[in-house]
Amino acid sequence: MNAASAHHDVRRHILDTARPIIGSKGFSAVGLNEILVAAEIPKGSFYHYFASKEAFGEALLEQYFTTYLARIDALLEQQDGTAGQRFMAYWIQWRDAHVAGAVHDHCLAVKLGAEVCDLSERMRLILQDGASAVVDRLARFIAAGQQDGSLPAMQDARPLAASLYQLWLGATLLAKFTRDSHPFDDAMATTRRMLGLPA
């Protein structure tokens, strides 16, 4: 393994280790030493891999969206079932992951959105661009469902996708407030209604 590959592997290891910690505690509450200890990286070496904590946060969000978008793409490209069925499976997976409490390691958009937008303009832009890319993928799902007849072709795909994504982000925040699944149940019912699917 050459030096560049080794550098990349260690950098990725730090990001992978930090993701569940920051997903649980938030960005500002986690110190660099906590991350380095968890990653078993010598103290003081952080700046060898990241120019600053803000640059680290940028890399963390970029990695999050790259991974998240790849998961949506894989679901979109599956051949099992209709596009509408796969689209509803996306929301079911969202709900089930949050209800099970298994989201600390990957749901950084919800966890960090409000916090880092006030700390870093660059991190805000990464979140903005990432959310837009998610909505683009969801619009592709809707368009595919309208094309194969599994979703009614009664609305433009992009605005509908944006509304659904906003609905589920809001439900996720409310679920954090209430510590129960009712916001997700309401979001699921509203999603089916907005898509013109039977309850």
Rank of each mutant, 00 (worst) to 15 (best):
A39D: 05
A39M: 04
P42M: 03
P42S: 04
K43T: 03
K43I: 02
G44K: 01
G44S: 08
G44Y: 01
G44E: 12
G44D: 00
G44W: 00
S45I: 02
S45R: 15
S45H: 05
S45L: 06
S45Y: 06
F46S: 02
F46L: 02
H48C: 05
H48A: 09
Y49T: 03
Y49F: 14
F50M: 11
F50Y: 08
F50P: 13
A51W: 13
A51D: 15
S52W: 09
S52K: 09
K53W: 07
K53R: 15
E54A: 09
F56E: 11
A59W: 13
A59R: 09
A59G: 15
L60N: 10
L60C: 07
L61Q: 08
L61Y: 04
Y64F: 14
Y64W: 06
F65P: 04
T67S: 14
Y68H: 15
L69A: 09
L69C: 14
L69E: 13
L69Y: 12
A70Q: 06
R71H: 13
I72K: 13
L75T: 14
E77K: 14
Q79A: 15
D80N: 01
D80S: 05
G81V: 09
G81P: 10
G81K: 06
T82R: 13
T82L: 11
A83M: 05
G84D: 05
R86G: 06
F87S: 01
F87D: 01
A89W: 00
A89I: 06
A89V: 00
Y90S: 05
Y90R: 04
W91E: 07
Q93N: 10
Q93C: 02
W94R: 01
R95D: 05
D96N: 11
A97E: 14
A97M: 11
H98W: 10
V99T: 15
V99M: 07
A100W: 00
G101Y: 03
G101N: 10
A102W: 02
V103I: 13
V103T: 14
H104P: 00
D105Y: 08
C107Q: 03
C107E: 12
C107A: 15
L108D: 03
A109M: 07
K111A: 11
G113V: 04
A114V: 12
A114H: 12
A114S: 04
V116K: 00
C117A: 09
C117L: 00
C117H: 01
L119K: 10
L119C: 00
R122Q: 15
M123D: 15
R124G: 06
L125G: 03
L125P: 00
L127F: 13
Q128F: 14
Q128P: 00
D129K: 10
G130Y: 05
A131I: 06
A133I: 05
A133P: 06
V134Y: 07
V134R: 12
V135K: 08
V135H: 12
D136M: 11
D136S: 11
R137D: 04
R137T: 10
R137C: 05
R137V: 02
L138I: 13
A139F: 11
F141V: 02
I142K: 03
A143M: 09
A143Y: 02
A144V: 01
G145S: 01
Q146F: 13
Q147E: 12
G149A: 08
S150T: 06
S150A: 08
M154A: 10
M154E: 07
M154T: 13
M154R: 08
A157Y: 07
A157R: 04
A157S: 15
R158K: 09
R158I: 00
R158T: 04
A161G: 07
